[in-house]
């Protein structure tokens, strides 16, 4: 079900730890990046790979906020809401995003292109307000800049 390349990667990750089950978190990220979400098959793959029960995997993935059991969307906008960004107008950015995308934080647009999340500090306070889309930082945001960024996305 998963590619051989992914399986190889998984083995490499597992080899980093003295105990197999320690690889649970990175493996969940691995399958999530592959499928844009963690499916039942993904959970099962990870469970078998590190030798734990399905329930153990489910416990871990519901504990953390960065795992999703539904498709994340093509572009995951992670808007910082911690104090520096907040003071520099993160709330305005959020309102703008909500209006433009028609969704609230924690939701995904109907076409599956965007997901909006509010996250805690991403360590870029000197360039606040900022958000991260998938793995890329976008800093010193204004509503206009947000529009530009979103328009430029594929």
């Amino acid at each position: 079900m998963f590619s051989e390349a992914l399986d190889k990667k998984a083995n490499e990750i597992i080899a980093r730890y003295p105990v197999k089950r320690s690889a649970l978190l990175p493996l969940l990220h691995l399958v999530q990046n592959e499928e844009n979400q963690i499916t039942k098959e993904g959970m099962r793959y990870v469970a078998k790979k590190v030798g734990v029960e399905m329930n153990d995997v489910f416990e871990v993935l519901t504990f953390y906020t960065m795992y999703f059991t539904e498709p994340i969307g093509t572009h995951h906008i992670q808007l910082c809401r911690t104090i520096s960004c907040y003071l520099r107008g993160a709330e305005e950015i959020r309102e703008h995003l909500e209006k433009r995308l028609g969704i609230k934080p924690g939701q995904r647009t109907a076409d599956g292109r965007f997901r909006l999340s509010e996250v805690e500090c991403l360590g870029s306070c000197c360039t606040a307000p900022m958000f991260q889309i998938n793995f890329d930082y976008h800093e010193n945001l204004t509503p206009e800049k947000v529009d530009q960024i979103l328009d430029s996305l594929p």
Binding site: E53, N55, E59, T62, F63
Partner: peptide, 9 residues
């Protein structure tokens, strides 16, 4: 049996 676990936090 491992039927129960803790969910969310």
């Amino acid at each position: 049996v491992h039927a129960l676990t803790k969910i969310a936090r």
